[in-house]
């Protein structure tokens, strides 16, 4: 298991960089993780999605897929891709310190 250090705190991540323990996440870590992924600034729109994704995870135990985000986060899918160009579900999950969302079977 790999580790990464954000905001002076060492956390465990999997080989793709997703947190293995979501409770280790702090808001202050988000901009640092985002920068690593090429997102230089977290705007209020980014935060809206990040908080939504994290709340959903805490509520349901899973990160939402793009389709769920588009339907329920109040941000359209097109806009989501503008905010998180490499894939909103994955990128927002990584920044929000939750495991990678998996499509259901």
């Amino acid at each position: 298991m790999a580790t990464a250090t954000y905001d002076g705190v060492e956390v465990e991540v999997n080989d793709e960089g997703f947190f293995t323990d979501p409770s280790a996440w702090r808001e202050e870590m988000a901009p640092i993780i985002a920068k690593e992924m090429g997102i230089d600034e977290l705007t209020p729109d980014h935060w809206r999605v990040i908080r939504f994704v994290r709340d959903r995870y805490l509520e349901t135990g899973g990160g939402p897929t793009v389709r769920v985000l588009g339907k329920t986060s109040g941000v359209t899918v097109k806009e989501l891709y503008r905010l998180f160009p490499k894939g909103p579900a994955k990128e927002a999950a990584k920044i929000a310190g939750i495991p990678k969302p998996v499509g259901c079977i």
Binding site: T65, V66, R67, G103, C104, I105
Partner: peptide
């Protein structure tokens, strides 16, 4: 196009 689907 997206999951879930019948008989994946």
């Amino acid at each position: 196009v997206d999951m879930p689907i019948k008989c994946p």
